[in-house]
Protein backbone atom coordinates (compact mmCIF):
# COMPACT_ATOMS: atom_id res chain seq x y z
CA UNK A 1 0.00 0.00 0.00
CA UNK A 2 2.87 2.30 -0.61
CA UNK A 3 2.20 3.58 -4.08
CA UNK A 4 -1.01 4.40 -5.93
CA UNK A 5 -2.12 1.48 -8.04
CA UNK A 6 -3.68 1.80 -11.55
CA UNK A 7 -4.20 5.41 -12.75
CA UNK A 8 -3.02 5.14 -16.34
CA UNK A 9 -0.43 7.67 -17.38
CA UNK A 10 -2.03 10.64 -19.12
CA UNK A 11 -0.23 13.17 -21.25
CA UNK A 12 -0.28 16.82 -20.29
CA UNK A 13 -2.41 17.64 -23.32
CA UNK A 14 -4.89 14.94 -22.36
CA UNK A 15 -5.15 16.30 -18.83
CA UNK A 16 -5.60 19.83 -20.14
CA UNK A 17 -8.30 18.66 -22.54
CA UNK A 18 -10.18 16.94 -19.74
CA UNK A 19 -9.81 20.07 -17.64
CA UNK A 20 -11.28 22.28 -20.37
CA UNK A 21 -14.08 19.81 -21.04
CA UNK A 22 -14.88 19.79 -17.33
CA UNK A 23 -15.07 23.59 -17.31
CA UNK A 24 -17.32 23.57 -20.36
CA UNK A 25 -19.51 20.93 -18.73
CA UNK A 26 -19.90 22.98 -15.54
CA UNK A 27 -20.43 26.17 -17.55
CA UNK A 28 -23.47 24.69 -19.27
CA UNK A 29 -24.61 22.74 -16.25
CA UNK A 30 -24.80 26.00 -14.28
CA UNK A 31 -26.73 27.59 -17.12
CA UNK A 32 -29.16 24.69 -17.05
CA UNK A 33 -29.54 25.05 -13.31
CA UNK A 34 -30.29 28.76 -13.62
CA UNK A 35 -33.00 27.96 -16.17
CA UNK A 36 -34.50 25.42 -13.79
CA UNK A 37 -35.32 28.14 -11.27
CA UNK A 38 -36.38 30.90 -13.66
CA UNK A 39 -38.17 33.03 -11.09
CA UNK A 40 -35.35 33.28 -8.57
CA UNK A 41 -32.80 33.77 -11.31
CA UNK A 42 -34.91 36.45 -12.97
CA UNK A 43 -35.31 38.36 -9.70
CA UNK A 44 -31.57 38.41 -9.17
CA UNK A 45 -30.90 39.42 -12.75
CA UNK A 46 -33.50 42.21 -12.52
CA UNK A 47 -32.09 43.67 -9.32
CA UNK A 48 -28.56 43.44 -10.67
CA UNK A 49 -29.49 44.99 -13.99
CA UNK A 50 -31.25 47.93 -12.38
CA UNK A 51 -28.12 48.57 -10.36
CA UNK A 52 -25.99 48.26 -13.47
CA UNK A 53 -28.33 50.56 -15.38
CA UNK A 54 -27.90 53.21 -12.72
CA UNK A 55 -24.14 52.88 -12.94
CA UNK A 56 -24.17 52.86 -16.72
CA UNK A 57 -26.55 55.81 -16.80
CA UNK A 58 -24.28 57.84 -14.52
CA UNK A 59 -21.36 56.94 -16.70
CA UNK A 60 -23.14 58.06 -19.86
CA UNK A 61 -24.23 61.30 -18.22
CA UNK A 62 -20.63 62.18 -17.38
CA UNK A 63 -19.49 61.13 -20.82
CA UNK A 64 -22.06 63.38 -22.47
CA UNK A 65 -21.33 66.37 -20.28
CA UNK A 66 -17.65 65.91 -21.00
CA UNK A 67 -18.39 65.85 -24.69
CA UNK A 68 -20.41 69.01 -24.31
CA UNK A 69 -17.74 70.93 -22.47
CA UNK A 70 -15.17 69.47 -24.84
CA UNK A 71 -16.92 70.69 -27.94
CA UNK A 72 -17.42 74.13 -26.43
CA UNK A 73 -13.80 74.42 -25.54
CA UNK A 74 -12.88 74.54 -29.22
CA UNK A 75 -15.02 77.63 -29.72
CA UNK A 76 -13.34 79.98 -27.31
CA UNK A 77 -14.97 82.88 -29.00
CA UNK A 78 -15.31 86.43 -27.72
CA UNK A 79 -18.66 88.15 -27.62
CA UNK A 80 -18.23 91.88 -28.24
CA UNK A 81 -21.25 93.83 -27.00
CA UNK A 82 -21.66 97.19 -28.77
CA UNK A 83 -23.17 100.20 -27.12
CA UNK A 84 -26.97 100.23 -27.53
CA UNK A 85 -27.00 103.43 -29.48
CA UNK A 86 -24.71 101.96 -32.16
CA UNK A 87 -26.62 101.21 -35.33
CA UNK A 88 -26.31 98.36 -37.80
CA UNK A 89 -24.35 100.25 -40.44
CA UNK A 90 -21.67 101.42 -37.99
CA UNK A 91 -21.50 97.90 -36.59
CA UNK A 92 -20.86 96.44 -40.01
CA UNK A 93 -17.92 98.75 -40.56
CA UNK A 94 -16.51 97.85 -37.19
CA UNK A 95 -16.97 94.14 -37.92
CA UNK A 96 -14.97 94.54 -41.11
CA UNK A 97 -12.22 96.38 -39.23
CA UNK A 98 -12.01 93.71 -36.56
CA UNK A 99 -11.95 90.98 -39.16
CA UNK A 100 -8.91 92.73 -40.60
CA UNK A 101 -7.00 92.20 -37.36
CA UNK A 102 -4.31 89.53 -37.64
CA UNK A 103 -5.47 87.77 -34.44
CA UNK A 104 -9.01 87.25 -35.75
CA UNK A 105 -10.33 84.53 -38.02
CA UNK A 106 -13.95 85.52 -38.37
CA UNK A 107 -16.53 87.92 -37.08
CA UNK A 108 -20.23 87.24 -36.97
CA UNK A 109 -22.68 90.07 -36.49
CA UNK A 110 -25.85 89.45 -34.53
CA UNK A 111 -28.23 92.31 -35.21
CA UNK A 112 -30.67 93.80 -32.74
CA UNK A 113 -33.63 92.09 -34.37
CA UNK A 114 -31.97 88.70 -34.54
CA UNK A 115 -30.89 88.97 -30.93
CA UNK A 116 -34.44 89.84 -29.99
CA UNK A 117 -35.91 86.93 -31.93
CA UNK A 118 -33.57 84.48 -30.29
CA UNK A 119 -34.15 85.95 -26.90
CA UNK A 120 -37.92 85.77 -27.36
CA UNK A 121 -37.75 82.20 -28.57
CA UNK A 122 -35.53 80.84 -25.86
CA UNK A 123 -36.18 82.97 -22.83
CA UNK A 124 -39.90 82.35 -22.60
CA UNK A 125 -40.42 86.09 -22.05
CA UNK A 126 -41.77 86.53 -25.59
CA UNK A 127 -45.02 88.27 -24.67
CA UNK A 128 -43.42 90.52 -22.10
CA UNK A 129 -40.83 91.70 -24.64
CA UNK A 130 -43.63 92.36 -27.13
CA UNK A 131 -44.73 95.14 -24.80
CA UNK A 132 -41.44 97.03 -25.17
CA UNK A 133 -41.57 99.87 -27.76
CA UNK A 134 -37.94 99.80 -28.71
CA UNK A 135 -35.40 97.00 -28.76
CA UNK A 136 -33.13 97.27 -25.71
CA UNK A 137 -30.68 94.65 -26.92
CA UNK A 138 -27.28 95.69 -28.22
CA UNK A 139 -25.68 94.43 -31.39
CA UNK A 140 -23.19 91.66 -30.68
CA UNK A 141 -20.09 90.73 -32.68
CA UNK A 142 -18.95 87.16 -32.23
CA UNK A 143 -15.21 87.21 -32.71
CA UNK A 144 -13.29 84.00 -33.25
CA UNK A 145 -9.57 84.33 -32.45
CA UNK A 146 -6.99 82.72 -34.73
CA UNK A 147 -5.56 79.90 -32.78
CA UNK A 148 -7.63 77.76 -30.56
CA UNK A 149 -4.51 77.44 -28.52
CA UNK A 150 -4.07 81.17 -28.06
CA UNK A 151 -2.99 81.51 -24.47
CA UNK A 152 -4.97 83.37 -21.85
CA UNK A 153 -2.69 86.43 -21.97
CA UNK A 154 -2.98 86.81 -25.75
CA UNK A 155 -6.75 86.54 -25.53
CA UNK A 156 -6.79 89.12 -22.77
CA UNK A 157 -4.74 91.47 -24.94
CA UNK A 158 -7.13 90.95 -27.85
CA UNK A 159 -10.10 91.69 -25.60
CA UNK A 160 -8.49 94.88 -24.30
CA UNK A 161 -7.85 95.94 -27.86
CA UNK A 162 -11.48 95.29 -28.84
CA UNK A 163 -12.78 97.20 -25.84
CA UNK A 164 -10.79 100.27 -26.90
CA UNK A 165 -13.04 100.79 -29.96
CA UNK A 166 -15.41 103.62 -29.02
CA UNK A 167 -18.48 101.71 -30.25
CA UNK A 168 -17.73 98.77 -27.99
CA UNK A 169 -19.37 98.51 -24.62
CA UNK A 170 -17.51 95.42 -23.40
CA UNK A 171 -16.02 92.15 -24.59
CA UNK A 172 -16.65 88.87 -22.91
CA UNK A 173 -14.93 85.55 -23.29
CA UNK A 174 -17.45 82.75 -23.77
CA UNK A 175 -14.87 80.47 -22.19
CA UNK A 176 -15.94 81.57 -18.79
CA UNK A 177 -19.01 79.42 -18.54
CA UNK A 178 -17.27 76.66 -20.44
CA UNK A 179 -14.71 76.67 -17.62
CA UNK A 180 -17.51 76.47 -15.13
CA UNK A 181 -19.08 73.60 -17.01
CA UNK A 182 -15.74 71.85 -17.11
CA UNK A 183 -15.21 72.14 -13.39
CA UNK A 184 -18.75 70.98 -12.74
CA UNK A 185 -18.15 68.08 -15.07
CA UNK A 186 -14.96 67.18 -13.21
CA UNK A 187 -16.84 67.25 -9.94
CA UNK A 188 -19.59 65.18 -11.46
CA UNK A 189 -17.08 62.69 -12.74
CA UNK A 190 -15.70 62.16 -9.26
CA UNK A 191 -19.14 61.88 -7.76
CA UNK A 192 -20.10 59.28 -10.31
CA UNK A 193 -16.88 57.41 -9.70
CA UNK A 194 -17.71 57.13 -6.01
CA UNK A 195 -21.35 56.26 -6.69
CA UNK A 196 -20.41 53.62 -9.21
CA UNK A 197 -17.91 52.06 -6.84
CA UNK A 198 -20.68 51.81 -4.28
CA UNK A 199 -22.97 50.27 -6.87
CA UNK A 200 -20.27 47.74 -7.73
CA UNK A 201 -20.05 46.80 -4.06
CA UNK A 202 -23.85 46.51 -3.99
CA UNK A 203 -23.72 44.15 -6.97
CA UNK A 204 -21.12 42.00 -5.25
CA UNK A 205 -23.32 41.80 -2.17
CA UNK A 206 -26.49 41.02 -4.10
CA UNK A 207 -24.69 38.30 -6.01
CA UNK A 208 -23.08 37.02 -2.84
CA UNK A 209 -26.46 36.67 -1.21
CA UNK A 210 -27.90 34.79 -4.16
CA UNK A 211 -24.97 32.42 -4.19
CA UNK A 212 -25.22 31.95 -0.43
CA UNK A 213 -28.84 30.82 -0.79
CA UNK A 214 -27.91 28.57 -3.69
CA UNK A 215 -25.16 27.07 -1.58
CA UNK A 216 -27.63 26.39 1.22
CA UNK A 217 -29.95 24.61 -1.21
CA UNK A 218 -27.12 22.47 -2.48
CA UNK A 219 -25.39 21.85 0.82
CA UNK A 220 -25.98 18.11 0.68
CA UNK A 221 -24.56 17.91 -2.81
CA UNK A 222 -21.45 19.83 -1.80
CA UNK A 223 -21.00 17.60 1.22
CA UNK A 224 -21.30 14.39 -0.77
CA UNK A 225 -18.95 15.65 -3.48
CA UNK A 226 -16.41 16.45 -0.79
CA UNK A 227 -16.79 12.98 0.73
CA UNK A 228 -15.98 11.30 -2.57
CA UNK A 229 -12.85 13.40 -2.95
CA UNK A 230 -13.87 16.65 -4.61
CA UNK A 231 -11.40 19.49 -4.21
CA UNK A 232 -12.38 22.96 -3.14
CA UNK A 233 -11.97 24.17 -6.70
CA UNK A 234 -14.28 21.48 -8.02
CA UNK A 235 -16.98 22.20 -5.49
CA UNK A 236 -16.97 25.93 -5.99
CA UNK A 237 -16.78 25.89 -9.78
CA UNK A 238 -20.52 25.58 -10.49
CA UNK A 239 -21.27 28.46 -8.13
CA UNK A 240 -18.64 30.66 -9.75
CA UNK A 241 -20.19 29.95 -13.13
CA UNK A 242 -23.63 30.70 -11.75
CA UNK A 243 -22.27 34.09 -10.71
CA UNK A 244 -20.80 34.50 -14.16
CA UNK A 245 -24.08 33.78 -15.95
CA UNK A 246 -26.25 35.88 -13.67
CA UNK A 247 -23.80 38.77 -14.00
CA UNK A 248 -23.66 38.43 -17.76
CA UNK A 249 -27.45 38.29 -18.12
CA UNK A 250 -27.77 41.31 -15.87
CA UNK A 251 -25.25 43.11 -18.08
CA UNK A 252 -27.24 42.32 -21.21
CA UNK A 253 -30.48 43.46 -19.60
CA UNK A 254 -28.80 46.60 -18.30
CA UNK A 255 -27.58 47.38 -21.81
CA UNK A 256 -31.15 47.10 -23.07
CA UNK A 257 -32.43 49.34 -20.27
CA UNK A 258 -29.72 51.94 -20.91
CA UNK A 259 -30.59 51.91 -24.61
CA UNK A 260 -34.22 52.53 -23.73
CA UNK A 261 -33.35 55.39 -21.41
CA UNK A 262 -31.10 57.03 -24.02
CA UNK A 263 -33.80 56.58 -26.64
CA UNK A 264 -36.40 58.24 -24.43
CA UNK A 265 -34.06 61.09 -23.52
CA UNK A 266 -32.50 61.72 -26.92
CA UNK A 267 -35.28 63.95 -28.29
CA UNK A 268 -35.57 66.38 -25.37
CA UNK A 269 -31.79 66.53 -25.07
CA UNK A 270 -31.39 67.34 -28.74
CA UNK A 271 -34.02 70.05 -28.39
CA UNK A 272 -32.06 71.64 -25.60
CA UNK A 273 -28.85 71.30 -27.57
CA UNK A 274 -30.35 73.09 -30.55
CA UNK A 275 -31.09 76.03 -28.26
CA UNK A 276 -27.40 76.42 -27.73
CA UNK A 277 -26.67 76.07 -31.41
CA UNK A 278 -24.61 73.09 -30.40
CA UNK A 279 -23.98 70.24 -32.75
CA UNK A 280 -24.58 68.10 -29.69
CA UNK A 281 -25.52 64.52 -30.19
CA UNK A 282 -26.43 62.29 -27.28
CA UNK A 283 -23.62 59.76 -26.98
CA UNK A 284 -24.39 56.11 -26.37
CA UNK A 285 -22.16 53.27 -25.23
CA UNK A 286 -19.56 52.42 -27.85
CA UNK A 287 -18.86 48.83 -28.80
CA UNK A 288 -15.87 48.74 -26.47
CA UNK A 289 -17.92 50.20 -23.66
CA UNK A 290 -20.71 47.71 -24.28
CA UNK A 291 -18.24 44.85 -24.13
CA UNK A 292 -16.75 46.49 -21.05
CA UNK A 293 -20.18 46.60 -19.41
CA UNK A 294 -20.77 42.91 -20.12
CA UNK A 295 -17.29 41.91 -18.98
CA UNK A 296 -17.56 44.00 -15.84
CA UNK A 297 -20.98 42.67 -14.88
CA UNK A 298 -19.85 39.08 -15.42
CA UNK A 299 -16.70 39.80 -13.42
CA UNK A 300 -18.67 41.34 -10.56
CA UNK A 301 -20.90 38.27 -10.60
CA UNK A 302 -17.88 36.02 -10.31
CA UNK A 303 -16.39 38.20 -7.56
CA UNK A 304 -19.63 38.16 -5.58
CA UNK A 305 -19.83 34.39 -5.85
CA UNK A 306 -16.20 33.93 -5.01
CA UNK A 307 -16.33 36.21 -1.97
CA UNK A 308 -19.18 34.22 -0.46
CA UNK A 309 -17.70 30.84 -1.35
CA UNK A 310 -14.41 31.79 0.22
CA UNK A 311 -16.11 32.02 3.60
CA UNK A 312 -19.13 29.75 3.29
CA UNK A 313 -17.49 26.67 1.79
CA UNK A 314 -15.19 26.42 4.74
CA UNK A 315 -18.24 26.38 6.99
CA UNK A 316 -19.51 23.19 5.40
CA UNK A 317 -17.99 20.45 7.47
CA UNK A 318 -16.27 18.13 6.97
CA UNK A 319 -13.50 19.93 5.16
Amino acid sequence: MVKRQRKPQKSVIEIFKIYLLEHARVLFASLGRIMKTPFTSLMTVLVLSVTLTLAGGFYLMVKNIQQLSGSLETSNQISVFLKTKVQEREAKTLAATIKGLPEVVSVKLIGKRQAMEEFKAYSGFGDALEALDNNPLPIVLQVLPVAKSMDAAAIKRLMDKLERYPAVDFAQLDMLWVKRLQSISALLQRTVMVLNSLLAVAIIFIMGNTIRLELQNRREEVLIAKLVGATHAFVQRPFIYTGFWLGLFAGVLAWILITLVVFVLSEPVENIASLYQGQFELLFLSLTETLGLLALSALLGVLGAWAVLFYQLRQIRPA
Binding site: I18, L21, E220, E221, L223, I224, L227, V228, T231, F234
Partner: peptide
Amino acid sequence: YKLLLDRTVFDNVALPLVVSGYHH
Protein backbone atom coordinates in the same frame (compact mmCIF):
# COMPACT_ATOMS: atom_id res chain seq x y z
CA TYR B 1 -26.82 6.05 1.55
CA LYS B 2 -26.15 9.78 0.97
CA LEU B 3 -27.29 9.66 -2.63
CA LEU B 4 -28.13 12.77 -4.66
CA LEU B 5 -31.85 12.41 -5.17
CA ASP B 6 -32.01 14.74 -8.16
CA ARG B 7 -29.39 12.78 -10.08
CA THR B 8 -29.73 9.48 -11.86
CA VAL B 9 -28.16 6.29 -10.59
CA PHE B 10 -25.49 6.69 -13.27
CA ASP B 11 -24.62 10.24 -12.18
CA ASN B 12 -24.51 9.21 -8.54
CA VAL B 13 -22.11 6.38 -9.20
CA ALA B 14 -20.05 8.54 -11.59
CA LEU B 15 -19.52 11.31 -9.03
CA PRO B 16 -16.20 10.04 -7.58
CA LEU B 17 -14.81 9.72 -11.12
CA VAL B 18 -16.10 13.12 -12.19
CA VAL B 19 -14.50 14.85 -9.22
CA SER B 20 -11.23 13.06 -9.98
CA GLY B 21 -11.25 14.29 -13.57
CA TYR B 22 -11.72 11.06 -15.49
CA HIS B 23 -12.47 11.06 -19.20
CA HIS B 24 -16.13 10.40 -19.90
